[in-house]
Each structure stands twice: as C-alpha cells, then as structure tokens.
Design a binder for these strands. Structure first.
Length: 470
RNA sequence: GUCCCCAUCGUCUAGUCGGCCUAGGACGCCACCCUUUCACGGUGGAAACAGGGGUUCGAAUCCCCUUGGGGAUGCCA
C-alpha cells in the first residue's frame, strides 16, 4: 500500500511551501488509496519549540491536511532506536568516530575553497587506531559519528518528478550521522524513520535533492529497500525568494486575512500540478485525479492576486449560513455584534446580495457593515450632499407614498415597479431615486441594489428608515 | 569555487514522449457592453516556446553548448 508522509520541522511556522508539500503528499496518498502520515522532525534540540509544533498542527488542521491515521509522531520518540542503529553501523565498521574539531573543519573547508575543490570532509579520521582515539579523548574531545560513504562511482535514482538524477560520489563525503551531543542527525534519521514507517513514496521539496544520495547510503548501510523519491519544485517570490512582499509565508496568516482553506488548497495544488485546463478543482476531485506525473519540474512564483481570485470563487460557492459561520470571527474582530434582527437580515438576503463581489472574508464584513447600523446615521460629506441634492428629499417622499399603498410585502420587483412609475410620472432617472434611497436606507453610498435592501429590511423598516432621513 | 536541478505570455500553466500549435486555458492588464453606487457579469484585445547549434521530411516537444534562475555545499531540517 502506498504510504506518504509530511515531515515538518518545528523550527518555525508552517511555511506556505511546506503546506503545498503536505498537500501533494496527501493528494498522492489519497489518489492511490494509501495513507498519509505525519512526523515532526524535532531532532534539532536547540531550535525546535513547542509553540511551533502547535502552530504547525493548527495550520495543517485548518487546511484539512492532518494525517490519515490521526497520529502526530515525534521523531525524537524514536531516539533509542536511532542510537541503536548508529551503534549497529559502528559495530559493523560502516560508521566511525570522528574527533575533528569545528575549527579544524573550518580550516579544511577554507583550504578546499581556495584550491577550487569540492568542499567535503576529507575522511581524516576514517581509520584512526585505538591509541589515536584515546589520545583525542584525553584531550577532552567528544566524537561525532560519520558514515563511510563510497568514494568511487556515481549514485543515481529515478525521481518521480525530476527524472533520473545522477551525482558523482566524489562530491559526497562521510557525513555526520550522530552529533557530539548524542543526537542523530537529520539525514540519518529520516531514512530510518521512513523505512520504519513503511513509507513507499518520499515526496518533498527539491531542496532535498542533494540530501537524497546521503540517505540512500543510509538505506544501503542498513540493508533497507529504497522508497521512491519525488522532489517537487519550490515556490518562489517575484524576486527570487518568497518574502512578505509576495504574500505571507506563514499559513495561518492566510486564515487571519480571510482566505478559505479550500481556496488556498486549490491555489497551492495549481502551483506545479495541473489537471488539463481546469482551474477550480475541489479537494474531492483532486484526490481522485492527482497524478505525480503531471507535476512540473520548475519552480513557480507565488501570486497572491490569483489566490484572491480563487478565494472569490469559493466564497460564492458557500451559502449564507456557511459564510456566516466563517464571518462571525471577523465581525467580532471589527467590533460588530450580531443580534437576531441582524442575523435575520444577513441570512435572508444580506449575504447573498454581496457575496459575489468579495475576494476575502473581510470584504464581506465591510459590505455588510451597514446592517449593523440603524438611523440616525452619522453621514459623511458624500452622503449628506446626496440627501441635500435638490428634489431628492421630495423623491424619497414620493417613494414612501407609493410604498405605503402597497398591500402586503414589498420586494425587489415591487421596488422596481414603484421607481419605474415614478420615473414616468416625474421624467426623472432611476438614479434620482436609487441613490437617495440607498443613502437613506443604509447610511452609505456603497451598498447592494435598492430593491434588495428594501426586500431584506421589509416594508415597515424601510419606510421608517427613509422617513428618518427626511 | 564545486555539485545538483530548472527554463512556454508579466504570473500559474496546456502541450504525453516530433506533425492536429499561424502555441490553448486561467489570473492580471486594456477596450467596449451591462448598470440605481461599488462590484459581479458579458464580449473582444495585447501578451510566450531564453539564445545558438545539431538530429529529422518535419521540433515548443529529442541531443549539445551558451545564458539566465534556483538549490546544496552545517555537529539545520
């Protein structure tokens, strides 16, 4: 069975690029009827934090990208297992103690750089005698453990998205598998854990291409079967690196900015993957049709404007009730308090009247704000000048006169009829009634169509509002 | 420096492994239309195969070089 995993490191927030890696792992697993697991790579004791773990969890949960088995595995939970593996390789002579100090390593790299050579550990402690080791220990040095890496030949693999990748072994070196502090390192531990968890497909960012040969040596030294590697391209910003200018790098900032998770997912999956000419692709459809063969090899640039377009598409797809659920948080954030009357306005037409002009949730809040207010309004200059326009108040009165004579309820159509009649009778234009009505009803010039507003407020409330402007 | 990877409109991409491509779609942009404000919407438009060599009857598609970008080069992941 296909098994993928997302393995974030809690040394920072959940990055937008990481989210897409998680998404691809999820989609691939789902599309192949497999499992998608999660493992927190917390072997960097100095930089990993509890807060970051929480932030990553929150971000993934928001996107609906939690592991299919519901387990959040911590890499350090397998510390003993990892240490035993190190010992095994040591015993088998496949790994060795290295006492080279950081200063010595730095000097070595400096020299290699000057000579134009590949920068790599030169294997100076590969064949130390017991006496030499003891001498270093007596000096107070603590050894790291390095894996012996084949120096001849080339290492290559068939990458599921990049094709065949070959790298000459002379550019590789005996890398450290266990630090002096006793904690095994990333390149060693990923291989072990991926094997232990039964991962069949390692899908990750292409910044890991260079790590792959090293990990392959670990699989080989441990006698494990290799998984399939798939290195997906990075997400860049307009000027190279992804920065705040291009959009937030922290996934949770998108939640805060009023993006819908399904929109972010859709946008992210289109960065690198395509399903013909389709743009709006639901998670359901994506999990059905995701194909790693259609993943691009080249990096893509993050474009928040297009993300906003996707968000607008998904906002329209939600009904008023669903949107209201999302909106509540943003209302309170703006200090707008919902009550039964307002809730009624919003659910019975309010939200539907404005939802397809919004790109982000806060846009809706702004568009719906007038429902939270009632006359007397604090008019601004623009509104005042409209109400003071010659004849406009009279137009309002004419409207009220007709509306009052309507039997039963007033709706969008009756408003149109009334205004049409008035236009005919007075020779005025629709806007000579529409604009003052809008201002009188809502206190603002930017609002939905007058017919919609009157229908939502109802006849009595509408007339009351208009009269208070007279 | 060395190694690895990448290269179609401004951006995301289609192009299925050479012919149906005078290169298609989407975002954005421009124009017009719709219109009671703001938007939505509709119609149309400008806009790309990085450059140079090959291979071939034929190349965006295959090969090589150049250039440009990215990544790695850690006792980070």
């Amino acid at each position: 069975m296909v098994k993928t995993r997302f393995a974030p490191s809690p040394t920072g927030m959940l990055h937008i690029g990481g989210a897409r890696t998680a998404l691809f792992n999820y989609l691939f697993a789902k599309a192949n009827g497999g499992e998608y697991l999660l493992r927190i790579e917390d072997t960097d004791q100095e930089r990993s934090t509890e807060e970051n773990k929480e932030i990553i969890r929150e971000g993934l949960d928001w996107l609906g990208l939690g592991p299919t088995d519901g387990k959040w595995v911590l890499q350090t939970d397998s510390l003993e297992r990892h240490k035993q593996a190190v010992q095994k390789l040591l015993d088998e002579g496949k790994a060795y103690e290295c006492f080279t100090s950081k200063e010595e390593l730095e000097a070595m790299r400096e020299a290699q750089k000057e000579k134009g050579e590949t920068i790599r550990y030169d294997g100076r402690h590969r064949n130390l005698t017991e006496e030499q080791k003891q001498a270093f220990r007596d000096e107070g040095r603590v050894a790291v453990i390095r894996l012996k890496v084949e120096e001849e030949g080339t290492t290559s693999w068939d990458d599921a998205v990049q094709g065949t990748i070959k790298v000459p072994n002379y550019t590789l070196d005996d890398f450290i598998i266990m630090r002096a502090d006793g904690y095994p390192t990333y390149n060693f531990v990923v291989a072990l854990d991926d094997h232990d968890m039964g991962i069949t497909h390692v899908i990750r960012g292409d910044d890991h291409i260079n790590n792959t040969p090293k990990q392959m040596f670990v699989y080989q030294a441990m006698g494990y079967e290799l998984p399939i590697f798939a290195h997906v391209p990075m997400i860049h910003g307009k000027n190279g690196k992804m920065s705040k200018r291009d959009g937030a790098t922290n996934v949770l900032e998108y939640k805060e900015a009023g993006f819908l998770p399904e929109a972010l997912n859709n946008y992210l999956m289109r960065l690198g993957w395509s399903l013909g000419d389709e743009e709006v692709i639901s998670m359901e459809r994506a999990t059905e049709h995701f194909d790693i063969n259609n993943v691009n090899k080249s990096a893509s640039v993050f474009d928040q404007v297009k993300l906003e377009w996707f968000n607008a598409q998904y906002i329209r797809e939600l009904n008023a009730e669903q949107l209201l659920t999302h909106l509540e948080y943003f209302f309170t954030k703006e200090g707008l308090t919902l009550n039964d009357t307002i809730r009624g306005y919003l659910l019975n037409g309010g939200i539907n009247a404005v939802k397809n002009k919004a790109k982000k949730l806060p846009d809706l809040v702004k568009a719906l704000e007038f429902f939270f207010k009632a006359p007397p309004f604090n008019f601004e200059e623009k509104e005042v000048s409209i109400l003071e326009t010659d004849g406009y108040k009279n137009n309002l009165q004419l409207f009220v006169n007709k509306a009052q004579n309507i039997e039963g309820t007033v709706n969008h159509d009756t408003v149109s009829e009334i205004v049409s009649e008035l236009c005919e009778e007075t020779g005025l234009k629709f806007k000579d009634f529409g604009m003052p009505l809008r201002v009188a009803l809502t206190g603002t010039t930017q609002a939905p169509g007058v017919g919609d507003i009157v229908e939502i407020f109802g006849k009595d409330e509408s007339i009351k509002r208009i009269q208070s402007a007279l």
